[in-house]
């Protein structure tokens, strides 16, 4: 079986280099599309997860907080849809990838009704593998973003 490169790391010039097979680049794009689709569908369970009530004791959430959330989701989605094929990312672009993957994973966890670790045991291997793709990409992005820039 041919070995597939899966690498995201900070390069010597400070940018974040992405060496992924095409299918994982497309995976990132699909994550962005899933997040934007949920954000744009107020009747969906995904929308409720992304825009869930912040303060259950208040009549309504702070409108500025709600607006900030909408703008940030839109911004991250747009950044990923612009850069999903890229092999070199700025820190801001890599942050957008991480944000989108994290929100998309959260949406998926909501769909699968995963609330506690034991719920993972009920997943079939394909579902687990799907979640692990998110987790591997997230971990690689965190490691790359936290790597010190070259001096």
């Amino acid at each position: 079986m041919e070995e597939v490169a899966v690498r995201i790391a900070r390069a010597g010039d400070g940018v974040i280099e992405v060496d992924l097979p095409d299918v994982l680049h497309r995976f990132v794009l699909l994550a962005a599309e899933a997040v934007r689709a949920s954000a744009g569908d107020p009747g969906s369970a995904g929308h409720r997860r992304l825009f869930g009530r912040i303060d259950e004791g208040a009549d309504r959430d702070d409108p500025l907080a709600t607006l900030a959330r909408q703008v940030a989701i839109e911004g991250a989605g747009t950044a990923v849809e612009r850069t999903w094929r890229s092999t070199r990312l700025t820190d801001d672009e890599a942050e957008a990838w991480l944000r989108v993957l994290s929100m998309a994973l959260s949406l998926r966890a909501g769909e699968l009704e995963l609330a506690v670790e034991e719920d993972l045991d009920a997943l079939d291997p394909r579902q687990r593998a799907y979640l692990e793709v998110f987790q591997v990409l997230q971990a690689l992005l965190v490691e790359a973003l936290d790597a010190p820039p070259p001096s």
């Binding site: 992304l50 869930g52 009530r53 912040i54 303060d55 259950e56 004791g57 208040a58 959430d61 702070d62 500025l64 907080a65 709600t66 900030a68 959330r69 940030a72 989701i73 991250a76 944000r99 993957l101 994290s102 929100m103 998309a104 994973l105 959260s106």
Partner: peptide
Amino acid sequence: RERAQRYCVELGLSGLQSTVGR
């Protein structure tokens, strides 16, 4: 409170579930 709500939004944008309570 307002700052707590903004932090809650930030956590949500990181894919984390959070809430604000008195």
